[in-house]
Every structure is written in structure tokens, then in C-alpha cells.
């Protein structure tokens, strides 16, 4: 037994990742027991589809938490970038290719993120206050000056994007499944972010700043530039998530997305990122997203009424972040 334990890295059994993974497996096991159809290609593809937008958001939110800040404005950035891009495309070039539409949305998202970046990195304002402010400002600006109507007649290329699938088919049971190309966007974001965080000096500087701002300044990290990058990058990710959301839902709805911030941050925190900064992993974040998506979509399968959704998520956060924190504390007391 001890030999098996030694195969795993130290801290494996007390980390958030493990805990969340165990909960996910348990959840799936129970769900399969109560409904044998649960564990199927259809469910997996449905859940994957649902986690694209939340996943991209969560990766952005994780990055900000690692850098020692918090961003609650990304949903407003996403909805603004997405809606403005749609309106622009419909007005000037309805047949614009989808990759150009995506590029514009990403660019707009990055610009809005840069506003956060200037306020935070240049003027040194507290991140929560700035992003709470821009959350309302961006959304208010959108609804007042750009438009408040739901647009379902999207540019044809956007609708086309939602029909691009990697695989589709019907199971033996007769239920339909499809795996959209949008999943590739999530994969791309994961790989890119992993590369930045693990392989570049910029990425390690993000961790360093989150660990100790003053120390980062003293070793000569350009703290402002790094912070600015973080908010621009998160803005760009939000722009991407927004346009994917509209394309997949086949509607540009200026009232959508906002309100999702807390679920996203919940997913990230479940995955082990800490609000004090300096800690967070991609694996943890993705597991956190998976758990939240499971709870949001499949709670009913294990016999919990869906009205209990937010209670369940709340309990998961308390237990999921509480147990590792408690264990860490005990380990520290023991080791000292």
C-alpha cells in the first residue's frame, strides 16, 4: 500500500485536484447506477459542449487570481465584444468569414481588457473595485449605445461555425450526439495558457507577482507590464468565449452571460486557485469547471431536484476548498 502511495507526487491526496476528481467520479458512478443511459457518448458530448464557454472564462479568471487580483468584469467584456462584433458585421459585411468575426471579437475583448489593465496596472487601483465598476459600465454602455435587442438573424458564417462538427452521429439507443469544432477553441486556449504559464518568463512572473508583489518589484520584474498583459489576455479570452457563445446559441443576446461570473470564479476556486494569489493550475480549473457543469446539467439524474443546484454548488465550494485548507493547516502544525 505504501508503495502505491509513493507513486504519486507529494501532496497528491490532499490537493484540490484529487478531491474534485474523486467527487466527479463518484457523481458519475451514482448517476450511472440510477440511470444506465447517463454514461453515454451523448451525455459526454452535451457536457463538453456546455463547458466550452465556461471553460474559457475560467481559464481567464484563474490567470487573474494567480496574478493576485480578481476579475468580475469578463462576462460584460464578453457580451460587449460579441454583440458589437455581430452588429458591426451585419451592418458592414454580413458575409464576413467566421475567422474574421472571431478575430474582431477577440480584438474588442482585448481592448476592453486593456481598459481594466490601465486602471489596475498604471493607476494601481484595487482589482475588485475596478472590475466591479467596469462590469456595470461596459454592460450599461452596450445596452444604452449599441443596442438592447436580441439578434437571431446572425451573419451566416457564424451560424455556419456552429454546424462545423468534428464528429456526429446517432447512438445505438437512438439518441443524437455531435462534437462541435468549438471544442478545439477550448483545447487551443488550454494549450496556449499552459505554455504561457509554464514555459515563459512572463508566465512565471505572473506567479511571482501573485506570490509577493514587493519581491517581484525588487528582483526587477516589470510588474505593470505583466499586470497589463494579464487583463488584456483575459479580455481577449472573454471576447472569444462571447462570440462562441453567440454562434453556438445562434443568437446575439445582450442580456446573456452577465451573472455567470460567480459560477466561473467558484469553478476556479474549487480547482485550487487561491484568492490571495500565487496559486492555481489548469488541471484544477478544468476539473472545477467539469464539476460545476455536471452539477448544473445532471443533478436531476442523481435524484436531487434542480432547485437545489446553488445549494449543492455552495456546499461543494465549502467542502472542496475547506478540506484541503484544513488538512494543510494540520500538516503544518504536525511538521513544525
Amino acid at each position: 500500500m505504501t508503495r502505491i502511495i509513493k507513486l504519486f507526487p507529494k501532496g497528491f491526496f490532499t490537493s484540490n485536484e484529487t478531491l474534485v476528481a474523486v467527487v466527479i467520479i463518484a457523481f458519475c458512478a451514482i448517476a450511472t447506477l440510477s440511470d444506465p443511459l447517463f454514461f453515454s457518448v451523448t451525455t459526454v458530448s452535451d457536457l463538453l459542449r456546455a463547458s466550452i464557454v465556461l471553460g474559457i472564462f475560467a481559464i481567464g479568471a484563474m490567470l487573474v487570481l494567480v496574478s493576485g487580483g480578481i476579475d468580475v468584469s469578463f462576462t460584460a467584456v464578453a457580451v460587449s465584444a460579441m454583440y458589437m462584433t455581430t452588429v458591426f458585421s451585419l451592418g458592414f459585411w454580413p458575409d464576413m468569414p467566421w475567422y474574421l468575426i472571431f478575430t474582431i471579437s477577440i480584438f474588442l475583448g482585448a481592448c476592453l481588457g486593456a481598459i481594466n489593465g490601465v486602471l489596475i496596472a498604471l493607476f494601481g487601483l484595487p482589482t475588485l473595485i475596478v472590475t466591479l465598476g467596469t462590469l456595470s459600465v461596459f454592460r450599461g454602455f452596450l445596452l444604452t449605445f449599441v443596442g438592447s435587442e436580441r439578434i437571431s438573424a446572425l451573419p451566416p458564417e457564424m451560424r455556419g461555425f456552429s454546424r462545423m462538427v468534428i464528429a456526429r452521429g446517432t447512438t445505438e439507443g437512438g439518441s443524437f450526439y455531435s462534437l462541435p469544432w468549438a471544442v478545439a477553441a477550448l483545447v487551443f486556449v488550454v494549450v496556449l495558457t499552459w505554455f504561457i504559464l509554464q514555459k515563459t518568463v512572463l508566465g512565471r512572473s505572473i506567479f511571482a507577482i501573485g506570490g509577493s508583489l514587493e519581491s517581484a518589484r525588487r528582483v526587477g520584474i516589470n510588474v505593470r507590464a505583466v499586470q497589463f498583459f494579464v487583463y488584456v489576455y483575459v479580455g481577449a479570452l472573454a471576447g472569444l468565449a462571447g462570440i462562441i457563445h453567440a454562434s453556438m446559441g445562434r443568437m446575439a443576446d445582450p442580456f446573456s452571460l452577465v451573472g455567470l461570473e460567480l459560477s466561473v470564479i467558484a469553478a476556479v476556486v474549487l480547482g485550487g486557485a487561491r484568492l490571495i494569489g500565487g496559486y492555481g493550475t489548469l488541471t484544477g480549473t478544468l476539473l472545477g469547471v467539469a464539476l460545476i457543469i455536471l452539477v448544473q446539467n445532471s443533478l436531476i439524474v442523481v435524484g436531487i431536484p434542480s432547485t437545489w443546484q446553488s445549494v449543492t454548488i455552495g456546499m461543494l465550494i465549502l467542502v472542496g476548498t475547506g478540506i484541503p485548507a484544513y488538512q494543510a493547516k494540520r500538516a503544518a502544525a504536525k511538521a513544525a
Partner: peptide, 25 residues
């Protein structure tokens, strides 16, 4: 002035990597 969340190796090597103006860590 260390980084509590980073490993011993990274703490020791951080300044060097910065001063070499590396992009990749």
C-alpha cells in the same frame, strides 16, 4: 523578498532568467 509560492529552484534562478532577457523560462 522571496516568492513563497514558487519552488526553491525558481526562487534562486528567477533574477538570472530575468536579466538574460529570456522569453522562455
Amino acid at each position: 523578498s522571496l516568492f513563497p509560492n514558487l519552488s526553491v529552484a525558481e526562487n534562486i534562478a528567477f533574477s538570472t532568467q530575468l536579466s538574460k532577457q529570456n522569453t522562455l523560462f
